[in-house]
Design a protein around this nucleic acid. Structure first.
Length: 981
RNA sequence: GGGCGAUUAGCUCAGUUGGCUAGAGCGCACGGAUCACACCCGUGAGGUCACAGGUUCGAGUCCUGUAUCGCCCACCA
């Protein structure tokens, strides 16, 4: 029989066949609507993976969940777009490429021309982009591959230029001289979010600064003040000593001057509230360590910068961009030999030298251990240097006049965020409930961040990225070339820089002629590139062709859901909402689903350095893509982390790799699905939809349809609520426990009976079809593979009068099951439950008495109603309990030599099987269990407060329960009595 | 320092708005080459729900506190 499925489930073969099928038609490539109002679209935009490396298991989880959502909606016949692509990931990618070039060729970035180096990064990008897309396809992601984008491709670049110009025109982009988080290793500025705080075991050094003139305080002459610092090397740039105005010594000291050691600079003592008063008893660590005197270094400390601004202090930068001590960047009085000696030293080297100098000069008063938080670069992991630098910023809390009408003006309630500022545009939808986080708790992260948002530094001292479209020329209001003179598209601002006033110009996008004329006239383009997140922020609409009003944008924007990890809620999610509102006028998605982070078996993050990561392709090789997806989805509840035990494995080709025994769960399920389907199809020979008559269905047919109906509506509701584990376990139970363990087992008998075969075949084909549909979002390959075969064997799978046939060419575009609610029948489900309990009881006795496969006879003494049910279905009991015959009646006598057990109130007799001791033990145990339950229920009902205050249905339930216990107890006692006779 | 979370069977986790004798998979024990599947079938054992208080007729679930673990955020005197 050619239609038969292969004997063993082979993921590789099925995955290849199915991928070919999906590629053969535009199943995942929706046409934009032609403006029809009733077109329901559903859009997910992929979080574009960085082209730094191949995807890891976290990506596999992320994309599995997106694919589940998108397939679910596609089957619900939405016009479904899953937009794929990759991110250029500025710093990260440039860093890996630099590292590789250094390792392989011994060359540094600066050994290349800019374009040549970018070419090298581009080559890396091409390689990894292909790898990533290949991985996504291997996982079964149903992305619209024809629309694949890259954050630096022409379409996205156009959006970047358009948005930059728009921001510039709105006066939101400005040149700021600021203390930035400078990474001396990569020599680039990091956003606050890119700084990792680590606890460092450091010291407080207590340094004495001599007063220019000794002063009398409380009758004592003092000739110095002592400052406590964790960063002695910055003292070279001190421009004041601050003390709290409330300090008793302040009256005598404020206004005095100290002579800065090493440098010889005279600096004032000033009063500032910021200074913490010393207090050795305080809980506040700073108060315990404080001397009351704070050295103020505006160029090298953010707090000191603030103090410097308040007191108009000079700003003296004593470091070069590489973190070495230098007099070339604003330090003009490095004339003393001691100061000269320090020039060129690395900052940490200089720290030691300076401390040593103070020690030698007897000016080092004390050194105390101090553990404190130090910001490190998330990229190079070296300590961040607060560094004074010219950077481009985006003003995030500045009201945007022309947006006041659409988005409102004034502060958002309870915040200092204007509704028509960029931060406000992102915050308001959350406050209004239009933007929703799942799980809800993550909305706090988003909200807190936006409420405390500071301006966004967007310059990056890199080559890989979108180059900043600003040209500059020295001088205030430098004249523009003629070609640009009349163009209203040009914005110009002037700013002070280290070299004096400069004029900046941002030509409108699409005016290459103006750019050329600017350069011809001696204007120079900014060397820096934009922060990666600048282009990522536009991803939901840049990919659809914004700023053009494309049909895609009209059809698929705003999108529906963003699915991502919690670590980029602030960096990315908030900025997409911000820019979506700002550029397109609407939020890019309504729901943000935040999934768990995958950890290893010990709760550690998976990482390259720990060697505990799992490559999705390895999992696909070892277990199959569906198995991996099944396992990942089944572990996705709304917890923050999921643990995935990691086990080493040797591949056939000898490679040592990591995989996880957890994937066995998914593989076993797929294997079961394959074999159950194979069995079903073996039994579908002669399948004829016309042979179905609903009136001829037996109780197992009606039962499985009832279970199916309940399952499909629960699964649908769960997916609507972004639950992944729950629908999968519902389906697992339905498929494995209901369908395979019971329905199929009973169907085996019916398939041999010509009178029943046609009905059983139709129901079986129908239920299998529906199971495949419901499982398809989770395990798309195997279900599609089986569906294709099933369509050959049993085309047109409907049930006349119950559900019309609605076969599709491919499962992936078939209708999502719905509309079986009328089949739910709780009476039938209860009857089958009783039958199952009875069968289990017989099997248990077989086990206990070692009568595995002998033919036996059984009977039961059951309450009248129960006896009727059991007799009606005695054949079902006999079939699966392997009984010759089974009869029930009220008051049926116990045969001699019968093993007995209790199924609820029913006394079950399995004939000619005896072991008195075992029997006694078992019945005693049953009795104890019943008594325990009975006692608990009695206790409840004896409590007046319970009877009076609990909900009536709960009390009624308890009463009914108690009656059952009493009946059961009576029955078990009777059995025990008989046994003891 | 602030915020968020976790703690339920040997392991990984479910447990809806408080309400039957707290569930699943794996693992374990026992039995099974039966004609879909040994990646399988059948049966079973296994839990003072981290700890201490409180609210309630009733708490794994709500509140307070403690302990342990994790993540995010925060200007390094």
């Amino acid at each position: 029989m050619t239609e038969q499925l292969a004997k063993a489930y082979d993921p590789q073969t099925v995955e290849a066949q199915v991928n070919a099928l999906w590629a053969s038609a535009p199943y995942f490539h929706p046409a934009p609507s032609d403006g029809a109002a009733d077109c329901k679209a559903y859009t997910i935009v992929i979080p574009p993976p960085n082209v730094t490396a191949a995807l890891h298991l976290g990506h596999a989880l992320n994309n599995t969940l997106q694919d589940i959502l998108i397939r679910f909606r596609r089957m619900q016949q939405f016009r479904t777009l899953w937009m794929p692509g990759t991110d250029h990931a500025g710093i990260a990618t440039q860093t890996v490429v630099e590292k590789r070039i250094l390792a392989e060729e011994g060359k540094r970035r600066t050994d290349f021309e800019r374009d040549a180096f970018i070419g090298r990064v581009q080559a890396w990008k091409d390689e990894y982009e292909a790898t990533i897309i290949g991985q996504l396809k291997a996982m079964g992601c149903s992305c619209d591959w024809q629309r694949t984008r890259f954050t630096m491709d022409d379409v996205c670049a156009k959006a970047v230029r358009a948005n930059f110009f728009k921001l510039f025109k709105d006066g939101l982009i400005y040149r700021g001289k600021r203390l930035v988080n400078w990474d001396p290793a990569t020599q680039t500025v990091l956003a606050d979010d890119e700084v990792e705080h680590e606890t460092v075991q450091g010291h407080f050094w207590y340094l004495r600064y001599p007063l220019a003139t000794p002063v009398e305080v409380d009758g004592r002459q003092i000739d110095h003040v002592t400052v406590a610092t964790t960063r002695p090397e910055t003292m070279l740039g001190d421009t004041a000593i601050a003390m709290n105005p409330g300090d008793p010594r302040a009256a005598a000291l404020v206004g005095q001057r100290v002579r800065l050691p090493i440098v010889g600079r005279l600096i004032p003592i000033i009063a500032d509230e910021h200074v913490v008063l010393p207090n050795p008893e305080s809980d506040d660590e700073k108060a315990r360590f404080s001397t009351g005197f704070l050295k103020v270094t505006p160029a090298h400390d953010p707090d000191d910068w603030q103090i410097g601004q308040r007191h108009d202090l000079p700003i003296i930068n004593v470091m070069a961009p590489d973190g070495s001590i230098s007099d070339k960047y604003g330090w003009e009085d490095a004339t003393e030999p001691e100061a000269q000696n320090l020039l060129g030293m690395d900052r940490f080297e200089a720290r030691e030298a300076i401390v040593e100098w103070f020690r030698q000069e007897k000016l080092l008063e004390d050194v105390r251990d101090y553990a404190h938080e130090v910001g490190h670069s998330y990229r190079s992991h070296v300590p961040i240097e607060p560094y004074l630098s010219d950077q481009w910023y985006i003003a995030v809390k500045k009201p945007i006049e022309h947006l006041a009408e659409k988005f409102g003006a004034g502060l958002i309630e309870g915040t200092d965020v204007p509704a028509n500022s960029l931060a406000g545009l992102a915050l308001k939808p959350l406050v209004d409930g239009r933007l929703q986080f799942i799980p809800e708790r993550y909305s706090k992260t988003y909200q807190n961040w936006l409420e405390n948002l500071r301006d966004w530094p967007i310059s990056r001292q890199l080559w890989w990225g979108h180059r900043i479209p600003i040209w500059s020329k020295a001088g205030r209001d430098a004249p523009l070339p003629d070609q640009c003179a009349g163009a209203d598209a040009i914005q110009s601002i002037s700013a002070e820089s280290d070299e004096g006033p400069v004029t900046f110009v941002c030509p409108a996008p699409g005016h290459e002629d103006q750019e050329a004329s600017l350069e011809a006239a001696g204007w120079i383009r900014d060397n820096d590139v934009l922060d990666t997140w600048f282009s990522s922020a536009l991803w939901p609409f840049s990919t659809m062709g914004w700023p053009e009003e494309t049909p895609e944008l009209k059809t698929f924007y705003p999108g529906d859901v963003l699915c991502t990890a919690r670590e980029i809620i602030t960096l990315w999610v908030s900025r997409m909402v911000m820019m979506g509102q700002y550029c397109v006028g609407d939020i890019p998605f309504k729901d943000v689903y935040i999934h768990a982070m995958i950890q290893d078996g010990q709760g550690r993050k998976m990482s390259k350095s720990l060697g505990n990561g799992i490559d999705p392709l390895v999992a696909i090789d070892s277990h199959g893509a569906d198995a991996m997806r099944f396992t990942l989805a089944s572990m996705t509840t709304d917890t923050q982390d999921i643990r995935m035990p990691v086990a080493p494995m040797t591949l056939p080709d000898g490679r040592e790799v990591n995989t996880s025994p957890k994937f066995d769960v998914g593989r076993n399920f797929c294997n079961k699905l394959w074999n159950a389907s194979r069995f079903a199809m073996m039994n579908l020979e002669g399948f004829d939809p016309a042979g179905f008559d609903a009136a001829r269905m037996d109780v197992t047919d009606r039962w499985i349809l009832s279970r199916l109906a309940a399952t499909q509506s629960e699964v649908t509701a769960a997916l609507d609520a972004f639950k992944f584990s729950e629908p999968l376990s519902l389906l697992y139970r339905f498929f494995w426990n209901d369908l395979c363990d019971w329905y199929l087992e009973w169907a085996k008998f019916r398939m041999r009976d010509e009178a029943q075969k046609a009905t059983a075949q139709n129901v079986l084909a129908f239920v299998l079809d529906r199971v495949l549909r419901l499982l398809h979002p989770f395990v798309p390959f195997i279900t599609e593979g089986i569906y294709q075969k099933l369509s050959e064997v049993a085309p047109g799978r409907g049930l006349t009068g119950i559900a019309p046939a609605d076969a599709a060419q491919a499962l992936t575009v078939s209708q999502w099951p719905a509309g079986l609610d009328g089949q739910i029948d709780s009476d039938i489900e209860e009857e089958i439950r009783v039958v199952q309990e009875t069968i289990r009881a017989v099997r248990d006795i077989r086990n206990k008495y070692n009568k595995a496969s002998e033919s036996l006879t059984a009977s039961a003494d059951a309450p009248e109603a129960m006896a009727q049910i059991l007799n009606r279905h005695s054949q079902l009991v006999c079939q699966l309990a392997l009984l010759e015959s089974f009869q029930a009646s009220q008051g049926a006598p116990k045969p001699n030599n019968a093993a007995t057990t209790l199924v609820e109130e029913t006394k079950l007799y399995v004939h000619d099987v005896i072991d008195r001791e075992a029997e006694l033990a078992r019945l005693e145990k049953q009795k104890q269990e019943i008594e325990r339950g009975k006692k608990a229920t009695e206790g409840k009902l004896a409590n007046e407060n319970f009877v009076n205050r609990a909900k009536p249905e709960v009390v009624a339930q308890a009463r009914e329960r108690l009656e059952q216990f009493q009946e059961q107890l009576k029955a078990v006692e009777a059995l025990l009595a008989e046994l003891k006779d």
